[in-house]
Amino acid sequence: MSQAEALEAGTTPTARTAGAAAAPRAQTAAGFAALFRSELVLTFRRTRTIALLGILAVLPVLIGVVVKIQTDGASGGQGPAFIAQVTQNGLFLVFTSLAVALPVFLPMTVGVVAGDSIAGEAATGTLRYLLVAPAGRTRLLAAKFTAGLVFCLAATLSVVAAAVATGAALFPLGEVTLLSGDTIGLGAALLRAVLVAGVVAASLAGLVAIGLFISTLTGSGIAAMATTVVLVITVQILDSFPQLHAIQPFLFTHRWLSFGDLLRMPMHWDNVLQNLGLQSLYVAVFGSAAWARFSSRDITA
């Protein structure tokens, strides 16, 4: 009978010792880093992430094809930045594509990834298991932020890679005439393209921090993604009103297109550095806010 069994077991509860149970283990550097690696694997194994990168890679192909078809009609001063140079040198498709992707497509994908980071885990309930593992709230937030930054780089690089491939296929490549009129070799120009990709990825860092903060506010991944993307669009609309010029230098989107300054000889770093400074300010402010919110929040999901 079950009660007899329980009774028998109940007579010797303290006689047992934690024989096979664990001795406390020490935290190791490899163990600490494991969550960061796991976070990257998780991010890039999602079908959603691959789809987003795919969409970004299609964009330069689309622009390249349109420019190729409309070569006769392409006139100077019209359309996105650098588009007039594309027909002379396919490498300029990189800069055109980045200029087109930066206002909408790139921030949208980053908003999806960053907005879903904490909220998505909360919605599926995996957050509670990560926290009792224990992942540590600060460590988890840092891992999510790192994965977000790596995604920014991957997103930018997929635009760049697709643009280089499309540009090489549809247009002549060769020596690149910079915006300042100087000419550099193809190798040096490719290096500049990589530099520009790095700067573009870094200019999305502020948005990652904002998305992470929004993600700590809600238990719904969709809500956090939508809020982040709406915020990006709203800020860009505010950036277009001349009446708001006083606040515009502080909007995180304001200097996003400053990467064009790197296509001069010598490179103009002022705007780029101001942009990167602004991004670090956003990372500091919204990163702290995300940390303050997340480290004190009751996890009831």
């Binding site: 283990r25 020490a26 935290q27 190791t28 490899a30 163990g31 600490f32 494991a34 969550l35 690696r37 796991s38 998780l42 194994r45 999602r46 079908t47 298991y129 990560l130 593992a133 224990p134 992942a135 540590g136 460590r139 988890l140």
Partner: peptide, 19 residues
């Protein structure tokens, strides 16, 4: 979207003391 094995590896990686 992860296998059972990868799910466990993920939760294990969350523990900084696990080897």
């Amino acid at each position: 979207f992860l296998s059972g094995r990868d799910n466990l590896a993920r939760f294990d990686a969350a523990d900084p003391t696990s080897d």
